[in-house]
Simulated assay, not measured.
Amino acid sequence: MNREIDGLIDIHTILSHERKLGGAVEADFIRLNSGEMFQSPVITRIDVTGGNVYTVSFVDESGRKFIVHVNEIAVIGSPGHKRIHELNNRYGKQMLTARKLAYLKRLCEVNAGSSDPFFVKEVIVILDDIGMDAVNEVLHPELLPVIRKTLSAA
């Protein structure tokens, strides 16, 4: 993680390759031209057409979701690529963890008994991203042996 982010295209690249890279993009703050400030926003989407960025979507700490035209953004302070379990934004962390757990559950069901290296690598990326504590708390007990077997095959 902790890839250097120099602009919106870098954020777009991270979000586009989220399955391979894992993690999420969180900034210290976003300030709009109106003066409105959002602390620890998790950026969820960057819309690009023809190489031009036109909107940024993010979720704030209270769970409100925003889609903002780039012309309305004054500053995005210290954006960073972090593992989901390292996010400061609790709502963003819960939302992304739930999404990853649902995906992991389905992935394990479809690939039960498989030791395919792509499957194993994807499970490892997800576990590294959300942390084993989240997996132990939420996943059905029948899936934990599948995950442990997958990790032992790695």
Rank of each mutant, 00 (worst) to 15 (best):
V125L: 05
K100T: 05
Y103H: 15
K121I: 00
P145I: 02
I11A: 05
L104T: 01
P79E: 02
V123W: 11
R31Y: 03
K121Q: 15
F118E: 12
S114H: 02
A154F: 04
S16I: 01
R148E: 13
R106T: 15
G7R: 06
L21P: 10
V120W: 09
S40A: 13
D129P: 14
I11S: 10
L144D: 07
E4D: 13
D47V: 06
V125G: 08
H140I: 02
V138M: 08
I9M: 15
T49V: 08
K105Y: 06
L15V: 04
K65T: 03
V146K: 13
A134V: 01
Q39K: 14
R31P: 06
S34L: 03
G22M: 02
T55S: 12
K149A: 15
N2D: 14
D133C: 06
S16N: 12
A74S: 10
V75N: 06
G113L: 02
L107T: 00
T97D: 08
N52I: 09
A153Y: 03
V110M: 09
N111R: 12
G131Q: 02
G77Y: 09
S57C: 10
E86H: 01
E109A: 01
N52P: 04
I43A: 03
V135G: 03
L104W: 13
D116M: 09
V135M: 13
E72P: 02
M132W: 10
G113C: 07
N88M: 08
D10F: 03
I147Y: 07
H85P: 06
L107H: 11
M95I: 07
V48D: 03
L144F: 05
G77D: 12
L96D: 10
D129H: 11
L87I: 00
H69V: 07
V25A: 06
R45P: 05
A27I: 09
M1L: 10
E72I: 04
F29D: 12
H81N: 09
D133L: 03
E137R: 02
R45W: 07
G51D: 01
V53A: 12
E36Q: 14
K65D: 01
M1C: 07
I9P: 04
N2H: 15
G63F: 04
S78E: 13
N89W: 05
Y54K: 15
I73L: 06
R64N: 09
L144T: 07
S34V: 03
K20D: 14
A24V: 00
G63L: 03
V48I: 13
G92D: 08
G22T: 01
E26M: 10
H17R: 13
I130L: 12
L8D: 00
D10A: 12
T44L: 15
N33F: 04
L139H: 07
E18W: 14
F66S: 09
Q39I: 08
E72Q: 14
M37K: 12
L21A: 04
K65V: 10
E137L: 00
V25I: 13
I73G: 11
G7Q: 05
Q39T: 12
N2R: 12
V120S: 12
T13E: 07
A112H: 15
D128W: 06
V70H: 07
F29P: 00
S57T: 03
I67H: 11
R83G: 05
E137F: 00
E61I: 00
K20Q: 12
G51F: 00
L104E: 11
G35T: 02
S115V: 07
L104M: 15
T49Q: 10
V110P: 02
I43R: 08
N33S: 09
P145G: 00
